[in-house]
């Protein structure tokens, strides 16, 4: 019987070698290992064996079954693997075809720059103040030390609506409104962003509507050196640590002393290029110590407190930052222009 079993094993193993699909494999399993299979058939003869032979043959039968099952198992795995490979091949796609991209719009470059500047100042402890775009002559000019007929009004040709009401020419009136609202309290630390309007023929560098951000700090013992420190910190956060500032004396009716501020050219890093007209510097800011008369009109005693103020044009910064050569592009809103600012 032992021989019979071993013969059977050899026969099955031989048959299995020829098997090359899962169906055949199953047929073989049924044929030899199934309930009515050949192995079962042989084992039926076990009853006629002696008590000594039975365990020996039983052991042999188990070995034979294991050997066959092991081969079947291996075959099965092989077929599964083949099947998987076949499927994978079939499912292969051209991954270079474009995906279904989710839309990504863009925040307007002016908003982007404005938010960036706001964030720098928020980090420095400033609040953001806002006010109306249509203003009274008082808030726009008089309270800023620009009485009627002051020659400096020429610097800011304005859009009047009536004798006393006009489009604000800067966001400084927000400073005045804030000072009045503070009722003499210190410290004041604000920036005022917003749209402003000046009569100007539009060209590549001028727009009758533009955006400004002005800052105002009032406190005990605010010094001009603090103004320099503040501006240096600001430009280094905005343009990078290597940026330096240079102050030039200038004139604004609402500050004394006044200065224009240049920063290291963002394009050439100060070596001189076309953008900075070979000077290595770009003018980006106006600033100064708040004029005592403006403090007085804002409800402060200039003998008790001092302050500084500064202002910059958002368009100017955006032009420099992105290398845009025409300010009008901000207001034309060509989608091919806007969509370039979708980046973080």
């Amino acid at each position: 019987m032992k021989e019979r079993l071993e013969e059977l094993r050899d026969e099955v193993l031989q048959v299995l070698e020829q098997v090359n699909d899962p169906q055949q494999l199953n047929d073989v399993r049924v044929k030899y290992l199934g309930k009515k299979g050949a192995l079962t058939e042989v084992l039926r003869g076990m009853g006629s064996l002696s008590a000594e032979e039975r365990p020996v043959i039983g052991q042999v039968a188990n070995d034979v079954r294991s050997a066959i099952e092991a081969v079947i198992e291996a075959k099965q795995q092989q077929f599964q693997q083949q099947e998987t490979e076949r499927r994978l091949q079939q499912e292969t796609i051209d991954v270079t075809l474009p995906g279904r991209r989710l839309p990504a719009g863009a925040v307007h470059p002016l908003s982007k720059v404005q938010q960036e500047i706001e964030d720098v100042f928020i980090g420095m402890g400033y609040s953001i103040a806002e006010g109306p775009e249509v203003e009274t002559d008082y808030y726009n000019f008089e309270a800023l030390n620009l009485p009627k007929d002051h020659p400096a009004r020429d610097m800011q040709d304005s859009f009047y609506i009536t004798e006393d009401i006009l489009m604000r020419t800067h966001t400084s009136p927000v400073q005045v409104r804030t000072m009045k609202a503070m009722n003499g309290k210190t410290p004041v630390k604000i920036i005022c962003p917003g749209r402003v309007y000046r009569r100007d023929d539009d060209d590549a560098t001028h727009s009758f509507q533009f955006n400004q951000i002005e800052g105002l700090v009032i406190g005990k013992n605010i010094r001009m050196s603090d103004l320099k420190g503040t501006l240096l910190q600001f430009v280094q956060e905005l343009f990078g640590k290597q940026t330096q500032i240079r102050l030039r004396p200038s004139f604004f009716p609402f500050t004394e002393p006044s200065a224009e501020v240049d920063v290291t050219c963002v394009q050439c890093g100060g070596h001189g290029c076309r953008m900075c007209k070979q000077s290595g510097w770009l003018e980006i800011l106006g600033c100064g110590m708040v004029h005592p008369r403006v403090l007085e009109m804002g409800g402060y005693d200039p003998n008790e407190v001092s302050g500084f103020a500064f202002g910059l044009g958002v368009e100017r910064i955006a032009l420099l930052k992105y290398g845009i050569d025409d300010i009008r592009a901000f207001y034309t809103n060509d989608l091919r222009f806007l969509s370039q600012f979708a980046r973080m």
Binding site: G105, A106, V107, H108, L110, S111, E133, M167, R195, Y197, F208, Q209, F330, Y331, N333, L335, L338, S339
Partner: peptide, 8 residues
Amino acid sequence: NEVITYSF
């Protein structure tokens, strides 16, 4: 896309 237009 955000746009910014004139007030006038």
